[in-house]
Design a protein around this nucleic acid. Sequence first.
DNA 1: AGTTAGCACTCTCGCATTGAGAGTGCTAAC
DNA 2: GTTAGCACTCTCAATGCGAGAGTGCTAACT
Lengths: 336, 336
Amino acid sequence: MLTERRQRLLQYIVDEYVLSAQPVGSNMLVEKYHLPVSSATIRNEMAALEDEGYVVQPHTSAGRIPTDAGYRYYVEALMREESLPDELQQTIRHQFHQAARELEEWARLAAAILASRVRNAAIVTTPHSPEPRMRWLELVGVHDYLALVVVVLQEARVLQQTLSLERPFTQEELTTIARTLNEALDGKSAAEIRAQEMRLDSAESAVVQMAAGMLEGADVPSNEPSYVEGLRDLLRQPEFAEGQRLLGLLEAMEERNLGRAIPAPGEGNVAITIGGEHPLDEMRGCTVISTRYTGPSGLHGTLSVVGPTRMQYPRSVAMVRYMSTLMEELLRVYFA
Amino acid sequence: MLTERRQRLLQYIVDEYVLSAQPVGSNMLVEKYHLPVSSATIRNEMAALEDEGYVVQPHTSAGRIPTDAGYRYYVEALMREESLPDELQQTIRHQFHQAARELEEWARLAAAILASRVRNAAIVTTPHSPEPRMRWLELVGVHDYLALVVVVLQEARVLQQTLSLERPFTQEELTTIARTLNEALDGKSAAEIRAQEMRLDSAESAVVQMAAGMLEGADVPSNEPSYVEGLRDLLRQPEFAEGQRLLGLLEAMEERNLGRAIPAPGEGNVAITIGGEHPLDEMRGCTVISTRYTGPSGLHGTLSVVGPTRMQYPRSVAMVRYMSTLMEELLRVYFA
DNA sequence: AGTTAGCACTCTCGCATTGAGAGTGCTAAC
DNA sequence: GTTAGCACTCTCAATGCGAGAGTGCTAACT
């Protein structure tokens, strides 16, 4: 447990370093914050903080910068949570009301706003349900032997897939099949569809199989549509100036799934993963702040900010939190 | 018009520079290519090439590197077009046959393969038609006052948009409206729909308006879904090592539309835009190689490779060309 | 006229040196 | 517990230097 004074000191160091990206020295702190002690005292205290592992100096005779543990302490104990100014809330709200009334569009917009406000990358997944249920099914012929299977989920998400037919079907035939199946499958989940006993001819059975597969596929994390915005802002950070650093991050974000890179907090919480706490090596040096937003009937999605560990924590947390409540509000109204 | 020897020389310089990213000197050329003249002669010739504007030296006493004009000459006159080895063609073909039979998936895969083979970024737009036509329309209720309008285009593309209803509608009512409209609108373009005289109640009219709008929106370039792959590879190029260079490019590619950054060649041609030939400043230093692939009934899309001007032209052109014919073949079969 | 050997010239790059500046840790005194 | 003072360390920018690369030019050769 740190003394009161060391806590304040750590807080100053983090705040300063986040702002300037420069190691923070004792003199500077005394002057800037009008501390009632001399720089020598501060130096003693900083040495203590270093012993505890909260700060390091990049080299002898440089100021201190926070370690991952330092940020962690800051986040847990020192950070005072901000709330967004009313006018900013209004501005953002306004941007949403100007946007089209589409779930996808909202997610994209949320990512864009988040990224631009925290000046880092943001990732938002569109709302989806853990157990997607069928709302509507349609078969549209592309040509005699090929049909498009269009599935609408209860969560107002539309999936499509192509189905090869074993013999020519007319559109009338397809429509008839779709109508029959629609009645049988309405509101059902993939598991329920597969469990259901039905008398089906082979074409119908193929469609049912495909529909069930589509439902199952819809909840696989890699298929969760997500929007990444603000990579530019990330590239602008001095941490990524050489570009090679970002390369690893990009690969981590593109290839493997975001799911592994981004922690999934419980509802209402904001998860903060700092630097070395990440399971992925490429994410060292990065902090991810993420939360989960939920809507009616199990619908949920994730909002995250990705940046260097040196990031504006209070502001980012406030933004993520606010965007989350906003998305939840929008979802409630949408599915009124 | 360059003499035969100077042409060869330019070709060597381009080939070498593309490979090594280092300025090319006279001695090196004589040795590596066993030229029947001395390095002094080569120096004279290179000075001449420099006068003509095809090469420059980054500083006195460095070798020469090609200018944009040099690359242009190379592309026009010197480059011998490669064709892809049969086995590579087979490999690629195989990758496509393993993929799902979806237009979107094909475009994504094409971008990924293109990028990985030329080690640069690749952009592929999904096939779309210049005048999209209605194939199918469906209305799915989300709740009493909200419905999803799902439109399937003839090109097997599915659009969705949300429609606010002025009074509560049951799903039966919605289905009836959709059925009526389907008959009236089948195969029609946005213009034809708007021109058509119909007796409609206000709900039907709202749906028709929205559908027409969706059709129109589908061909706006900014809505053309496109897949960008291989940004990693781009970042790996020494030209973009500092990262800030790429930043401009990323912005150009994200914000304004790709349409402006990417030339649209006539059918069957491969357009090559080199460095300063680009209208956008951010693209200086980059070459874009792109072609258009076409399918049945006016369907078309674009395949492009984006890289530094120092790029493997023959190989890239061959890849782009091959992927284009492959996409065309796939489209033909798909819409058989 | 074209080619070439020879050579002076120029520029980059890596390396070591230097001095200023920043910031520390330590000690001894308050 | 605090602090003044000071030696110490390390970075950073500037400077100088030598090696190396590659050129352009000239004069001689075919």
